[in-house]
Amino acid sequence: MSHISVSIDDEHLESMGSVARALQDQGMQVEQVLDGVGIITGSISEERRLLLASVPGVAAIADSSLAYQLPSPDVGIQ
């Protein structure tokens, strides 16, 4: 399973719930439907990932597994 973010095209911004259900039907575990920015986050197995691209409303699929780490509070450059 890999974490992904699915960008929704402009035409489907008003119907992201339906797109999320269609993504679930293809095996995606949907975690967040972010209607302010038109992104659905979640995870999917590598073998099923390609299936998501054919879901109507999907503009792009990207890995979203970057980690962010601040230095500890006592470090001078933050």
Partner: peptide
């Protein structure tokens, strides 16, 4: 000090939905 894409995207979405004119992110 740790975070990930899902949380940051959720934060952006929350700020946009609340009509924030400016969103500041001191992270990378």
């Amino acid at each position: 000090g740790a975070g990930d894409d899902a949380g940051i995207l959720a934060g952006i979405n929350w700020a946009v939905a609340n009509g924030c004119a400016v969103i500041s992110m001191s992270l990378g």
